[in-house]
């Protein structure tokens, strides 16, 4: 099992150069059955990462470029009257897949965004009172430009909460960038990439992830973090119970990726920024989320 995980990471790292940490985070997010939000400037390899992950995990992949005129039906599908059968027939939209890449999700209107977010929550589509189940596994990798860019509809806080993790890619280091420039970009290799696992194996990994042991001592630490976030004044609101659960699941996945059968406080610290960065609102709005989370880690003692 550990081999498979290592293979996944190795294969992905060949395409996305010098971003092992982000790859691991993204993988942890998938293992913890969550949806992933990648936020960064255009051209940082967001789409490539999403595409690579789908390919490596042997999953069916659909990509939707979100634009301001995209409608919910463009994602979910639409019922069309079939003259031969004299009935409405449902034409599934791109959402009926394993991995949906929602590219530049913040360019679509809130109406379309919320249609997607509903699907993410329920893993099913209901149209004309008929419920269509999505294939399993199903997850959404959304990319978003920082909302300060012109012509975007920032996701509201309540919808950000639907994403288990939010990661950023950042500029590559000099060495990786040199290699990137020497090649022709990752896209060509991507076409030749063979899957490391099957989708069934992924489901098994997801199940195994839940079995990673979480001791009482670790829960004490987790609760100390939640308590602090609720009592400290630098946050306008503390972490919700859902955020707490998310933290636990991601830490389990992180421990699994690192070949441990139990979670240690370092796991929590490693995934904390990605899991709570978009959930904690800094009341002063001055620091960015990474600094805020770093301060949070520093402030909470490991019991």
């Amino acid at each position: 099992m550990q081999n498979k995980i290592n293979t996944i990471i190795a294969k992905t790292s060949k395409i996305i150069l010098g971003k092992e940490q982000q790859i691991k985070l993204a993988l942890a997010c998938i293992l913890a059955r969550g949806h992933l939000l990648i936020e960064d400037l255009p051209g940082m390899g967001k789409t490539t990462l999403a595409h690579t992950l789908a390919q490596v995990l042997g999953l069916q992949f659909q990509r939707v470029q979100f634009t301001s005129d995209l409608l919910p039906a463009d994602i979910l599908g639409v019922s069309v009257y079939d003259r031969n059968e004299a009935a409405f027939k449902f034409h599934p939209g791109p959402v009926f897949t394993n991995v949906l890449l929602a590219d530049e999700i913040n360019r679509a209107t809130p109406k379309t965004q919320s249609a997607l977010l509903e699907v993410m929550e329920e893993a099913q589509v209901t149209i004309d009172a008929v419920t269509h189940l999505l294939p399993q596994p199903f997850f959404v990798i959304a990319t978003q430009n920082p909302s300060s860019q012109i012509g975007t509809f920032a996701l509201p806080e309540s919808q950000l909460d639907r994403f288990l993790m939010r990661i950023t890619l950042d500029y590559p280091d000099a060495q990786s960038e040199r290699r990137l420039l020497q090649s022709n970009g990752g896209r060509e290799q991507l076409a030749h990439l063979s899957p490391a696992i099957t989708s069934n194996e992924l489901l098994e990994l997801q199940l195994a992830c839940q079995q990673i042991h979480v001791s009482d001592a670790l829960l004490d630490y987790l609760q100390a973090i939640l308590k602090y976030s609720r009592e400290a004044t630098q946050f306008t609101s503390g972490l919700s119970p859902r955020a707490g659960l998310s933290l636990k699941q991601c830490a389990q996945a992180w421990a699994m990726i690192h070949g441990r059968d139990h979670v240690i406080p370092e796991d929590i610290q490693a995934i904390l920024s990605s899991v709570v960065g978009h959930r904690l609102l800094n009341s002063s709005h001055l620091e960015n989320s990474t600094e805020t989370v770093a301060a949070l880690i520093r402030a909470v003692a490991i019991p």
């Binding site: 240690i264 406080p265 370092e266 610290q269 880690i297 520093r298 909470v300 003692a301 490991i302």
Partner: peptide, 9 residues
Amino acid sequence: KANHEGAIE
């Protein structure tokens, strides 16, 4: 060891 530091770290 800082209070927030894990044993491994």
